[in-house]
């Protein structure tokens, strides 16, 4: 059963990821991204990270992809990109070589060191459920980082509003 879930979710992740880099239309690429994010959420559930799976679906698949789609629709850049045009001849094979090399190195390191990892265990000790232990960790050990996160979000929101706002003076100049 666990094997079946792993295989299905892995197929979703890989198919979506290849869709992101292969589809010409950015809208289709965004839908491939949704497939990948749902697959990763399924893996999170399989590894008993239930809270992170919920956040993955709500924040990533819900908010971030919708933001991508909004920008695509807003700018009207949903025209298909011509993937056959290639300004640098060596770029695409070089990129594939580098990507395979990076993956291969990491896989080799993981396979060599697999004896130290052992098998999967429960994260949550003494029958504590996932959300409770995550919250205890977040609000005790990492509470400063958590508070700084709110500052980061405020700065990001204000910065984006300032960036994308058209001021009246520049409209007159245009």
């Amino acid at each position: 059963m666990e094997l079946l879930v792993f295989v299905l979710a892995t197929a979703m992740v890989i198919a979506g990821a290849i869709g992101v880099i292969a589809y010409r239309n950015p809208v289709h690429a965004a839908l491939g991204l949704v497939l990948t994010l749902f697959g990763v959420a399924v893996h999170f559930v399989a590894m008993e990270a239930h809270f992170l799976a919920a956040v993955q679906v709500i924040v990533y698949a819900g908010a971030i992809v919708v933001l991508f789609l909004f920008v695509i629709m807003l700018l009207g850049v949903d025209r298909a990109e011509d993937l056959d045009v290639e300004p640098f001849k060596v770029q695409r094979p070089l990129a594939v070589i580098i990507g395979v090399a990076v993956s291969g190195l990491v896989i080799a390191a993981v396979v060599r060191g697999r004896s130290t990892l052992g098998s999967l265990q429960e994260v949550t000790a003494e029958g504590d459920d996932n959300i409770r232990s995550l919250a205890r960790n977040l609000y005790s050990d990492h509470v400063l980082a958590f508070e700084l996160t709110s500052v980061l979000l405020i700065v990001a929101v204000v910065g984006t509003v300032v960036l994308t706002r058209r001021s009246r003076r520049s409209e007159v100049a245009e």
Binding site: I14, A17, G99
Partner: peptide, 10 residues
């Protein structure tokens, strides 16, 4: 690792 490689290639 495979997912990271696909993202890097893209």
């Amino acid at each position: 690792a495979v997912l990271f490689g696909i993202g890097a290639v893209g």
